[in-house]
Simulated assay, not measured.
Amino acid sequence: MSQTIASLSRKIGTAGDLQSVVRTMKAVAASSIGQFESAVLALDDYHRAVQLGLVACLREMASPLVPAPAPRRENGPIAAVVFGSDLGLVGQFNDVMASFVVTTLADLPAQKTVWTVGERIRSRLRQTDLGLDKSFMLPGSIGAITALVGQILVALETLREQGAINQVYVFHNSPHAGAIYRPVCQRLLPLDQVWRRQLTAMAWPTQNLPEVMGGGAASLRAFVREYLFVSLFRACAESLASENASRLVAMQRAEKNIDELLEALRRSFHRLRQSGIDEELFDLVSGFEVQPRGRNILNNCSGPTEK
């Protein structure tokens, strides 16, 4: 009996420690969501401003100068940059992204190589037939995203100049109302005629026509660099916001399950403890009544007899 009670006591202690860890991770996830969601909202406005700058440059230039050091081939080699997570306890976050990447790339008839941001998503994709190349550490804060984006852009530009890649796709989870997040894919490169037509189709927000200062070609190059930078930056920020939202939901479920487990363990513990106390009292009373002296003491304790 004592061993069973001791075992339940250890389980209650372990569950209590796990509950503290879950609550801590829940608080961290909740506090992180705010900063990443604020960054995403700010990036939406900045991305819109960059797009309008590109629209102004493209409309002013008869033959827009879009960087194209590598030869264009319709089905050239593809580099896919996939954002996942470095840490676990995020539910199906990485599994959903891995399935989405495999399905999307299967429809693209070209040689493919995958770059991963996050160790967890890399371990998922390692189980597929996709070829994995570069791996990047996932930043833990907004300020660290800039360095990561810079590394990715430098590596992409190097391979494009060598003609090793022609197309670049970015995969990440994006916050979505009603579903926490959803996987999305963006074709980042090449900046071809399709990309140009999509931009020039945007309506200018005012009646005043824009004028590009300082030379259209130089301005266009600057806006293209900002476009690539903000696209990757926003993808990373949205992925981190989705990751923390998924972790928060997972921690809420875990907290509920632990609370239910602790309640069941405590009921079992109190029931076994009370059963043990009852058995000990029964044995004590039974043994006491067997002794003659015990019977006399019990009779004396029952009070004076009536004459």
Rank of each mutant, 00 (worst) to 15 (best):
A62G: 01
P190K: 06
S135M: 09
V81T: 06
L58I: 14
V170T: 05
L89K: 07
V82E: 07
R295C: 01
L41P: 00
L105W: 02
R271A: 15
A250H: 13
E280P: 00
G143Y: 05
A201T: 12
S85T: 12
L284M: 13
A144K: 13
L89W: 13
S9W: 07
L87V: 10
L52R: 04
R122G: 02
A68D: 06
S135R: 11
R247E: 10
A144N: 09
Q274H: 11
P175C: 09
R10C: 05
V168G: 06
L189V: 00
V81A: 08
R126L: 12
G214K: 05
C301E: 05
V194W: 05
L89I: 10
S302D: 10
V154S: 14
P210L: 08
N257K: 12
A42W: 00
A217K: 06
A27R: 13
L54S: 07
R295T: 04
L138T: 09
V149I: 08
T200N: 03
G91Y: 10
L125I: 05
K134W: 04
A49S: 12
E255M: 02
C301S: 09
H270C: 06
T104M: 09
Q186E: 13
F223S: 07
I277R: 12
A110S: 15
A155F: 01
I121E: 01
A177H: 14
A106E: 15
H47V: 03
H172E: 06
V285S: 10
A80E: 02
R196G: 00
Q198N: 14
L199I: 13
P210V: 04
Q19M: 12
N75H: 11
Y227D: 11
N166Q: 10
I152K: 04
E263G: 00
V55D: 10
L228E: 12
D129N: 11
L265Y: 15
K26I: 03
S123E: 12
Q35L: 04
G276A: 07
I5M: 05
A155V: 02
M213L: 14
G276L: 06
G143P: 00
I78P: 08
R266F: 02
A56H: 03
M25E: 13
C236W: 01
V170W: 04
G88R: 09
